[in-house]
Every structure is written in structure tokens, then in C-alpha cells.
């Protein structure tokens, strides 16, 4: 029974993110969203499974592909969409944009635009929990494209040395922008990097939210009990380009079609429809999600633009230093 309820909830979250991203793409093509827009379509099971494995007071830090994690963490879709629209009601008051989703209410600590640069910061969040004696765990997401940059190495080295309560989650979507794994890493099993730090590791495919949740849960439990960090490589695939400007000509249609067969959302929906205990609720969830997305767009559309007076006030706490 519990598993059915969880399945329905996972389905709702996967669908919410999928639909949010599809509508973001639509708004982007209509010129309502500017700058970069990196969609999470295809990778949703990771954010949903990971957030199901942590508690309210735990922390999450991620890359610029951050909408899915923010929604899974509980950010209201309207607040997320308003940020994409650059509105003051957005999570970062329209000052951060797509790549910088921050939400103190849900301990969502960004949204970071420099590849790998957020990983030491995430280790610092975990450091603070340990220093203060709090039982909180930090989930630090990154793409496999961040594997080679120095900040990644330093973050894992220090986190392992100090046994920080952190789980590094590598979302391996197999392309660092347009460069496939085998052209940028000498060893394509990224989880092996954990061995160099004496860190626990795990590696699996993100085609099922329950698996993602349970495997991350084990790492979260280790971190919470003081056993230190884990590096988890989760194989996934983004169904869209790196960003809206990327037609993804570096991969074939047959590859994309094959990956779509493993789509966690489609698979879960099929399971729910085949189960007499859940099949009647799928349509209702679809309806609820559609209404929520429509409301989010309406909220973003009708929200005010941030004013110039916000800029200096948000740059410094207290007096502006000039």
C-alpha cells in the first residue's frame, strides 16, 4: 500500500518537473525567458528519488540544471517559473535566473553556473553541519562534465579527509555539453574516483525512482551516522540539448530513441496504469499537475518586475561598500 502511494507521489513529481520544463521551453521560444535555459527532461528520477531520501532540514546544492531539484525539494512551481521570467516573486527575486535557484525555506542552496565550482561550497555546508553538531546531510549534485576540473578534486579530497556528511551525486547524462564521455575521461566509470579518496561509492542507472531513492538513502544514512561521504554515479540521459541553443547534432536519433525507452516517467506511468490499485488515479494526477503548471505560468506572467532599488540592497548586507 505504502509503495503504491509513494509511486503515485513520485509520478506526480516526475510529471510536474517534465511539464514545468516543457512549458519553460515553450515560454523561452516565445521570448518570455532570456539567457540560458538548461532543461532537466530525462533526468527527473534523480532529483525526485534523491529528495525522497532526505529530511526537511537536509541541504541540496546543484548545478545550473537546477529546476528539477528545486521542484522536487518543494519550491512552489509559480515561484520557480517567476524566476525564469525574471520577476520579483521568483525564488531569487528575478536576480538569479534559470541557473541560480535559491530557496532558503527548503534548504535549496543553488543553482550554480561555474562547472564544479559549487562542489567545495557544498562540502562547506556539510562542514558547518558537522561543526555545529547537527545531524544534517548535504546532497551535492554535479554533471559528469565536472569530473576533470580542479574544484571537484579538492572538494572530494577535503570531504573524505574530514568525513563530512555529504553525498556527491554525479548525474552522468553522458555528454559534457556536446562531448561524449569517452572523449573527455580516460576512465568512464566515474564512481572509481571515490577509491582515490577512500570514499564509499555506488553506481546505477536512473530508470526507476524507487531504486534511486533506496540507493541514495543508503549513502545518506552513512553520512548521517558519521561514516563520511559517498560518491554515487547515476547514469541518465537528457532528452533535450545541453541548453535551448543546442540542437544536439553530436548524437543520433536512434541513440535518443533507445534512451527514451528507459524514461523513468513513462515506465512508472505504465506500471501505475497496469495496477488496479493505482490506475484510476493517474488521470487525476495529470489533471492536477496541468492546473498547477497553468497557475504557475499565470503567476509568473502577472508578477511585477524587480526594481533597480533591489540591486544595491541585495549586493551587501547593510550599507553598500563603494
Amino acid at each position: 500500500m505504502k509503495r503504491r502511494e509513494e509511486g503515485l507521489e513520485f509520478f506526480r513529481q516526475l510529471l510536474l518537473i517534465r511539464r514545468f520544463e516543457e512549458e519553460s521551453a515553450r515560454a523561452y521560444s516565445m521570448g518570455k525567458i532570456g539567457g540560458f535555459l538548461h532543461l532537466y527532461i530525462g533526468q527527473e528520477a534523480i532529483a525526485v528519488g534523491a529528495c525522497a531520501a532526505i529530511q526537511k532540514d537536509d541541504y541540496a546544492v546543484t548545478t545550473y540544471r537546477d529546476h528539477g531539484l528545486a521542484l522536487a525539494r518543494g519550491m512552489p512551481p509559480g515561484v520557480a517559473m517567476a524566476e525564469l521570467y525574471g520577476k520579483q516573486t521568483g525564488c531569487s527575486q528575478g536576480l538569479g535566473g534559470s541557473m541560480h535557484f535559491f530557496h532558503s525555506e527548503t534548504n535549496m542552496l543553488g543553482g550554480h553556473g561555474i562547472v564544479g565550482g559549487h562542489r567545495p561550497l557544498a562540502a562547506g555546508v556539510a562542514f558547518a553541519s558537522k561543526y555545529q553538531g547537527y545531524p544534517h546531510v548535504t546532497l551535492a549534485f554535479y554533471g559528469e562534465g565536472a569530473s576533470s576540473i580542479g574544484a571537484s578534486h579538492e572538494a572530494m579530497s577535503l570531504a573524505a579527509l574530514w568525513k563530512l556528511p555529504i553525498v556527491f551525486i554525479c548525474e552522468n547524462n553522458q555528454y559534457a555539453m556536446g562531448t561524449p564521455l569517452k572523449r573527455h575521461l580516460s576512465i568512464t566509470d566515474i564512481s572509481l574516483k571515490a577509491d582515490a579518496y577512500g570514499m564509499a561509492k555506488d553506481r546505477f542507472v536512473a530508470d526507476d525512482v524507487f531504486t534511486v531513492r533506496d540507493r541514495i538513502q543508503a549513502a545518506v544514512d552513512r553520512a548521517r551516522s558519521g561514516e563520511g561521504p559517498t560518491l554515487i554515479e547515476i547514469r541518465t540521459y537528457r532528452f533535450r540539448g545541453h541548453s535551448m541553443s543546442d540542437p544536439a547534432k553530436y548524437r543520433t536519433k536512434s541513440e535518443l530513441d533507445a534512451e527514451k525507452q528507459r524514461d523513468a516517467l513513462t515506465r512508472l506511468e505504465k506500471q501505475l496504469l497496469e495496477d488496479d490499485g493505482t490506475k484510476d488515479q493517474v488521470a487525476a494526477i495529470r489533471e492536477t499537475v496541468e492546473a498547477e503548471i497553468a497557475e504557475a505560468i499565470q503567476f509568473a506572467e502577472s508578477s511585477p518586475e524587480p526594481g533597480l532599488e533591489l540591486l544595491e540592497a541585495t549586493t551587501y548586507d547593510g550599507d553598500f561598500a563603494r
Partner: peptide
């Protein structure tokens, strides 16, 4: 880079 970043994350959380 590592410990400067650790300081920043720690400063964000108290």
C-alpha cells in the same frame, strides 16, 4: 580553492 569554498558554504549556513 577547496578550503575557500568550504568556508563559503559554511558561512552560508551559520
Amino acid at each position: 580553492c577547496g578550503f575557500a569554498g568550504i568556508g563559503i558554504g559554511a558561512a552560508m549556513t551559520g
